[in-house]
Design a protein around this nucleic acid. Structure first.
Length: 216
DNA sequence: AAAACGGGGGC
DNA sequence: GCCCCAGTTTT
């Protein structure tokens, strides 16, 4: 089954009125480390193919040791591996963390560039990571298809089109003429708390009646 | 286009 | 056990 766009709009409206706090920026107090462009960037790297909770715990441990590119370079690759374990691809990511730190210092005086073009030049940062960094670190009003958003789009049937568009293009079209940033956050929060990857809480979902594929 | 990177979790 | 996991680089 697939959902129509007007149903999608209705779903967004219901979620918005039921959980107005979801489209607000994440509170700093929900994290145990400073949310700087650098820590945000590294968190995004750590999050690939890894559960949110594991990523959060790993980030907390890592940023307690080093929350700037300069401090990061004082750590050995092995100690970073140990610290971030058990995130997926932890060896490759430890290497990537060091490379990115080195690159930021050499090219941008230790700062994360507020530019998609520049972010994409960094090894280890692709289109999705760049979008998430721009949104979270710099508040840019763009859509960022993270794993939650992707999963929900798929669940609602928006990714089973004959002419395959990227999930990024599809979401952009669905959220056109709206405040993309807030609505994007709304979907992420929905995916984290109710429409979860494991054991989705359909029984408390306010839009269950509109869902094409409830797992209830 | 497909493999590789690496664990966790569902069934 | 086996299968999945939608991020990026490498082959």
């Amino acid at each position: 089954m697939e959902m129509k766009k007007d149903t999608f709009d209705k779903v967004i409206a219901i979620l918005h009125s039921r959980y107005p706090e979801w489209d607000a920026p994440a509170k700093k107090s929900t994290y145990d480390y400073d949310r700087t462009p650098f820590t945000i960037t590294i968190s995004v790297i750590l999050s690939f193919r890894t559960k949110d909770e594991v990523t959060q715990e790993a980030g907390k441990r890592l940023f307690a040791l080093a929350d700037t590119p300069e401090k990061m370079l004082t750590l050995s690759k092995e100690s970073i591996e140990k610290t971030i374990y058990p995130v997926g691809f932890y060896r490759k990511k430890a290497q990537s963390v060091l490379e990115i730190s080195r690159y930021l210092i050499d090219r941008f005086d230790g700062k994360v560039p507020n530019s998609e073009k520049e972010l994409l030049k960094i090894k280890g940062i692709g289109p999705k990571a760049a979008a998430i960094i721009l949104e979270r670190a710099f508040g840019r009003n763009i859509v960022a298809v993270d794993t939650h958003v992707h999963r929900i789009l798929n669940l609602w049937g928006f990714l089973n089109t004959d002419t395959p568009q990227s999930s990024y293009e599809i979401l952009k079209a669905l959220l056109d003429d709206k405040e993309k940033r807030g609505l994007n956050r709304l979907l992420v929060a929905f995916g984290q708390t109710i429409c979860r990857p494991q054991r989705p809480r359909c029984e408390v979902c306010p839009v269950q009646a509109l869902c094409p594929n409830p797992s209830i």
